[in-house]
């Protein structure tokens, strides 16, 4: 018996085998359907528009933002400037993605630098505060 025959035999008794053999049992066939509602609960033709309350990036060819967008993690600092520059380049140009990748690395460095700065500021301040506190608590002669 060939492997192919053996496998078919092993699976023939299972409820799994061939359950969706008929094309009518396949939800994605055809992949592109005639126009129809995706779900019965869609109750708009054009969705309402979300209003931006901060700077949101968008690709160059869009006149306005899509009806729904994310306002999370807006572009900031040097990496933000690079990202805004990248979104002025059409995404059909490799420069667009290369600039975004560069911005990602700069973003990481910016955050590392900010963390170091925080430590560099907080550690001396904390040490000074501790020294003052200890000096105050020590009994004076």
């Amino acid at each position: 018996m060939t492997d192919r025959q053996r496998q078919r035999l092993e699976h023939a008794g299972e409820p799994v085998y061939g359950a969706d053999l008929s094309r009518s049992e396949r939800p994605g066939v055809p992949m592109e359907t005639e126009p129809r509602s995706l779900t019965p609960t869609v109750h708009w033709t054009d969705p309402e528009r979300q209003r931006p309350d901060r700077r949101v990036t968008k690709r160059r060819e869009l006149q306005q933002l899509t009806p729904v967008f994310s306002s999370a993690n807006p572009p900031r600092g040097l990496s933000g400037a690079l990202r805004r520059a990248a979104y002025r380049i059409p995404e059909t140009h490799p420069r667009h993605f290369l600039t975004l990748m560069l911005a990602d690395r700069v973003d990481v460095l910016e955050h590392r630098f900010a963390r170091l700065l925080k430590i560099a500021t907080l550690v001396p301040l904390g040490t000074a505060a501790a020294v003052v506190l200890v000096a105050k608590l020590l009994p004076r002669r």
Partner: peptide
């Protein structure tokens, strides 16, 4: 509306 919900044009401005 053509079943291609992964390709929606109203949710990704980027």
């Amino acid at each position: 509306v053509r079943g291609l919900s992964a390709n929606c044009e109203n949710t990704n401005p980027n």
